[in-house]
């Protein structure tokens, strides 16, 4: 039976890249699919042209081509990422790490309740941390893409998701919109006790999420990627 050869496999990888699939893991799956389909056509008639068959098979993916596959894959990976975050958060609600959460909440509460500008200090502090994390991940992402471009590295979707924290950093700004902290600033001296307790918990959550997404999960990167992409060792 006629098989797709090495050059043709390379051409298939190139084809997926030309059709906006930049992630190697997604490319690999599509390449195998296209190769299988082409080989099946050849089983009926081995003289059919490779390029013609490729176009014929690509049409089956619909008007958006591979874009939907990539998009859905991104959604799936983001979901996977948030599940990891959730697992880590759960650890901070159980012994022994819950002690860290309690101490952190207490520190936040202490700052908010004892200093006139306590809330401002915390709010600005967290914003600075979020921005620093955004810049840090942006820097790392650029470095990764540079290596990919020079051909030294393959880009895996989950790796990118880990680097960009799956958009979590943007989510961390959410309390600022909801609670309208801008208004809090003017009346920071008069927050009720319940209000102080509440914002202390909000800030604790922000600190923990930042810590998890910037340090904990990236620290486990190799392990996570190896499990998600067994092909890393083969390619």
């Amino acid at each position: 039976m006629k098989k797709v050869n090495k050059q043709q496999i390379d051409r298939l990888y190139e084809f997926t890249r030309q059709h906006y699939v930049e992630y190697y893991d997604v490319q690999t799956e599509l390449v195998d699919h296209l190769a299988n389909a082409i080989e099946e056509y050849w089983e009926e008639n081995p003289d059919q042209d490779f390029e013609e068959l490729l176009q014929k098979e690509f049409k089956k993916f619909g008007v958006f081509g591979f874009m939907e596959v990539v998009e859905k894959r991104q959604n799936a990976m983001t979901k996977k990422y948030y599940k990891m975050i959730l697992e880590e958060v759960k650890c901070f609600l159980k012994l022994p790490k819950v002690i860290i959460s309690i101490v952190l909440s207490w520190i936040c509460f202490f700052i908010v309740s004892n200093f006139n500008y306590g809330l401002r200090i915390l709010a600005v502090g967290v914003v600075i941390l979020i921005f620093s994390s955004v810049f840090y991940s942006g820097f790392n992402l650029r470095r990764l893409k540079k290596r990919v471009k020079s051909g030294n590295k393959k880009l895996y979707l989950l790796e990118e998701t880990l680097l960009t924290s799956g958009g979590l950093l943007t989510v961390l700004f959410f309390p600022y919109y909801v609670l309208n902290f801008g208004n809090f600033f003017d009346t920071s001296e008069t927050i009720s006790l319940q209000g102080q307790i509440f914002v202390s918990f909000v800030f604790t959550a922000e600190f923990l999420l930042l810590y998890i997404s910037v340090f904990v999960i990236p620290g486990k990167k190799e392990e996570i990627l190896k499990k998600a992409y067994p092909e890393m060792e083969l390619s």
Binding site: E29, L30, K60, F61, E68, V69, R73, A76, K80
Partner: peptide, 17 residues
Amino acid sequence: ITEGALYPALHKLEADG
């Protein structure tokens, strides 16, 4: 099964564990 539907479904099932 269309290709455009199969892979997203597989990826979703994978993400769901």
